[in-house]
Design a protein around this nucleic acid. Structure first.
Length: 885
RNA sequence: GGGCUCGUGGUCUAGUUGGUUAUGACGCGGCCUUUACAAGGCUGAGGUCGGUGGUUCGAAUCCGCCCGAGCCCA
């Protein structure tokens, strides 16, 4: 029996442990009906990081859905993945073990990674369990595991067979410090000090002018222009000069050729909108490659390639006499030589934004490498339709997916030149470069250690092969989680890819933060769609970001990070869950201690009310004929039916905060404040099975409905009061389907409310007796309840309205009817009403030359009681109180 | 710089197919021991709905511009 105060610290830990020990959330082995399976595909978090609010928030929202669907009878598949395949885990492993990945064979290094991350995974598991998330802990996977590597490589082979992947020489982002290619998302902007060098370029005649014979001696060496650059060492890589189309001053240069100082190559002067007119002189050189724009120009204008800096940051043969110097040394030497040649007009310090590798802060370079790509551009329409097929919660977030697809300019590069990661299962013939792909049966393979599946090249018969040493982009693996969860594998007998658990796929729900819709979600949709021909998710639930209490992003450098660990030492998990349910899905949510405090208060109210219900329902009948229910009991249960209908619909639509608030409000105000006060007297003053039954029935329903949100306190109360099986295993309540005089019940409650106010206003205690109360209004069947709870000696129902003097105070128009009908005449009508210039005849109002139908207006009256006692207005009813103070 | 989202009493929020008196909670003031709960109950104050211009008889709601925040892209 619940007694004393609720002790969340002990209770929450107890249930978290038992839920796991009892396998309460286990996905049933033989659940094979796709219609009753509810499968969730959570994006696996990076395990080497610590738990942050984003995890708590995201997983809590998923848990609401999981618990709700479980109670509705679905077999819920709620797995957990550990993303330990990223660079973060590799660095962690090197750090922890004091090793370098270069010293190990790739497979061996990954084994070490698995060992190191296992420890962190344990910690992560514990924290997730401490949040009471109803994950099935028998359904877990690690992205670095050989099984997942196999799926990743199978995906590669499948897409290659389908012609969706190709290999091409293209620019890659390169970190010269780490000597690795990195993806766009691994770079970040950094403000750095640098120098602008104003360098004079000569103008040479273009081919056209030369051939047309317009060239004169003086045109040649006389004309020049100035380019400001921070990268003079890239002069040897210069392949073009660009002018903005709106740049009138330099427009005349377009079409001519420029001569690069010191190096002498002649390059075209072209026009392009991507020139930034605000920076430097408005003229810019394009070098292959100095930055991202250079790559775009290279591709858009079909420019030649001149690579002047190699992978280690050393100047190449293109740099002539500077070859072999480091980029920094070359810059100094070139600047000095430019100065000597008179081509350096100015040098000044600036700060500008550069792309740096987020791990080491080194400015990135752009190199040309052979890269593998997945085709995207040719199927943009299809992928857009795939997105449209999913239900988006909230709907508005589909726009992000749509904009992303519409803005795609390149296919997706999936190869990374990192020395750790999941390898491409590919070899190349040393002679003819024929691509040899591993056999599916052999996967996972590492070409650096394993032999190709053929002895000789099927193309040319050559028997020497070069291993592909690239690894997959991390998204290439992360985008396969529905297939990993579904047990996707090669069946050698049917020679087809098959799902071991096809009932899970497509997954019912994909949760996703709105920040990575364009990466994680998009790539997952694309790849799974290509592999299976089906959109992998029926629905997507987007969660917002957790911000600090000033609505600003939590960031270590700003120092406004609040750790969930600290907070959960102070507050119950259920309080955090209550807070998490407090925002519209998809919206950002500020961390607010007040939100958790409100949750604690609700838990306390639930606890205390349960204690009272328990004490009142010891003799409650398990069954009770609904026809024998007293009016107020019938009214309460019928009202609860309506609330449940609302709450159920909101939970179905992931409108957690609406469900939460409505449930809370009905429980607190209607059940506790109104009903419970009345029912407790009835039960205490005499045997009242109708009240006891109603109390218990309603209370059970509250516990089950609160269970998805307040998972722990409801479990404690349920198991303590009712049943040794979990509240989370109870069926979601169906409406009882009772008829009740809802209006009379509400009027009765309004009368009670008015009397409470009367007592409060007159500084009377709530249990102070009142001599006589007369009610004009329908509270039929509730008379005893009203007089009981308000301690009324005599309650009299009036058959006709008491003596009331009415004074007309104004006229209320129903604008939704008057507006469309009379439009511009509305101000005239209002003016006439203002000056009392109107007449009402047979219910029709004549005003300002028009006639208003009865439903268009209401005469407002203030009513004054002229008889004995005090008059109270209680909704539709009028209450007269006779009380001798 | 571009796109998307958000902006409602001190704080968090409901309401946005246009209808005039904007919801609830937290906090704040006042009153009340009602044998579940004073961390409770009743009640009150507090908002020209980010700013500005427009459309309309009527705008928190629709449109333009501006400001602030978040995310993604450059």
């Amino acid at each position: 029996m619940p007694s004393g105060e609720y002790d969340p610290e002990t209770v929450e830990a107890k249930w978290q442990e038992r839920w796991v020990d009892e396998d309460l959330y286990a996905y049933p082995e033989r659940a094979v009906d796709p219609d009753t399976v509810f499968s969730i595909d959570s994006p696996p978090p990076t395990v080497s990081g610590s738990l942050h609010w984003g995890h708590v928030y995201g997983f809590t929202l998923q848990d609401f859905v999981a618990r709700f669907n479980r109670m509705r009878g679905d077999e819920v598949y709620f797995p957990f993945g550990y993303d330990d395949n990223g660079i973060a885990s590799e660095l962690l492993t090197e750090d922890e073990l004091g090793i370098k990945h270069q010293d190990y064979e790739r497979r061996e290094f990954q084994k070490l990674c698995r060992e190191v991350t296992a420890e962190y995974e344990g910690e992560f598991t514990e924290k997730m369990q401490n949040l009471g998330i109803s994950i099935d802990w028998d359904q877990t996977y690690q992205t670095i595991s050989p099984e997942v590597q196999r799926v990743s490589q199978l995906s590669f082979v499948d897409l290659y067979d389908k012609g969706r992947q190709y290999r091409q020489r293209a620019p890659a982002i390169w970190c010269p410090e780490c000597e690795t290619a990195i993806s766009q998302v691994e770079t970040e902007d950094d403000e750095q000090g640098s120098h602008f060098h104003d360098i004079e370029f000569g103008v040479a005649d273009s081919e056209e002018q030369r051939s047309s014979g317009s060239r004169t001696e003086s045109d040649d060496s006389e004309e020049s222009f100035v380019i400001s650059t921070t990268r003079p060492e890239l002069l040897p890589a210069c392949v073009a000069v660009f002018v903005h189309p709106d740049d009138d001053d330099n427009e005349h240069l377009v079409g001519q050729e420029a001569e690069v100082p010191l190096f002498g190559q002649r390059v075209p002067i072209l026009e392009d909108e991507r020139v930034d007119l605000e920076t430097g002189t408005g003229l810019v050189m394009c070098c292959t490659f100095g930055d991202q724009t250079d790559i775009e120009w290279y591709q858009a204008h079909d420019l030649p390639l001149r690579v002047a800096i190699d992978e280690s940051g050393t100047m190449t043969e293109e740099a002539d006499e500077y070859a072999g110097l480091s980029a920094d040394e070359a810059r100094e030497a070139i600047v000095s030589d430019l100065d000597d040649a008179g081509a350096l007009l100015d040098k000044r310090a600036i700060t500008h934004t550069v792309n740096v590798h987020e791990r080491c802060g080194t400015s990135v370079e752009f190199l040309v490498k052979d890269q593998w790509y997945i085709k995207l551009l040719d199927k943009r329409e299809e992928y857009l339709e795939a997105g449209e097929q999913m239900d988006w919660y909230p709907e508005k977030m589909f726009t992000r997916y749509k904009n992303w697809i519409e803005g795609l300019q390149w296919d997706w590069a999936i190869s990374r030149q990192r020395s750790s990661g999941i390898p491409f299962p590919v070899w190349y013939c040393e002679d003819c470069e024929h691509v040899v792909i591993a056999d599916r049966e052999d996967l996972p393979v590492d070409p650096l250690s394993d032999d190709p599946p053929v002895d000789a090249c099927p193309e040319c018969g050559h028997d020497e092969f070069a291993a592909e040493d690239d690894v997959f982009d991390t998204w290439a693996t992360s985008s396969l989680t529905p297939l990993i969860n579904g047990g996707w594998d090669w069946n050698p007998e049917t020679e087809e890819m098959e799902l071991e658990r096809p009932e899970l796929y497509p997954f019912d729900m994909r949760p996703q933060g709105h920040d990575i819709i364009s990466f994680w979600l998009f790539h997952t949709v694309v790849k799974c769609y290509e592999h299976t021909g089906e959109v992998p998710f029926d629905s997507v639930m987007i969660n917002g970001m957790v911000l600090d209490e000033n609505r600003e992003k939590m960031s270590k450098s700003v120092g406004n990070v609040v750790s969930p660990d600290e907070v959960l030492e102070k507050f119950p998990v259920d309080a955090a869950r209550y807070w998490a349910a407090g925002s519209a899905v998809g919206d950002d949510l500020p961390y607010q201690e007040k939100g958790l405090v409100a949750g604690e208060k609700l838990m306390r109210k639930l606890w205390n009310a349960s204690k009272l219900v328990e004490s009142l329902t010891e003799d409650a009948p398990a069954e009770f004929d609904h026809d024998d229910l007293k009016a107020i009991d019938r009214w309460l249960l019928a009202s609860l039916d309506r609330e449940l209908e609302f709450v159920t619909e909101k939970l179905e639509n992931r409108e957690f905060s609406k469900a939460r608030d409505r449930l809370r409000s009905f429980f607190w105000h209607t059940f506790c404040d109104d009903y419970l006060e009345i029912a407790k007297q009835r039960v205490r003053e005499g045997d009242d099975p109708s009240a006891a039954y109603t109390l218990q029935t309603a209370h059970k329903r509250f516990l089950t409905c609160f269970a998805p949100i307040l998972a722990h306190v409801t479990e404690e109360l349920w198991r303590d009061m009712y049943d040794e099986t979990s509240v989370h295993d109870q069926p979601w309540p169906e409406p009882l389907g009772l008829d009740a005089d809802v209006a009379a019940g509400e009027t009765a409650m309004a009368v009670v409310g008015a009397l409470r106010k009367y007592k409060s206003d007159n500084q009377l205690s709530m249990n102070a007796p009142v001599d006589l109360v007369q009610v004009y209004g329908d509270i039929h069947g509730f008379e005893e309840d009203v007089s009981g709870v308000m301690h009324i000696e005599e309650l009299e129902l009036l058959g006709e309205e008491p003596e009331i003097e009415s004074v007309v105070t104004g006229v209320d128009l129903d604008y939704s009817l008057v507006g469309p009908e009379y439009g511009a005449q509305v101000p005239d009508i209002e003016a006439a009403l203002e000056s009392d210039d109107y007449e009402v005849e047979d219910g029709v109002m004549h005003v300002a030359g028009v006639e208003l139908a009865p439903e268009m207006f209401t005469i407002e009256e203030s009513r004054e009681y002229v008889g004995e006692g005090d008059m109270l207005e209680a909704g539709d009813a009028i209450v007269i109180v006779q009380h001798a103070d």
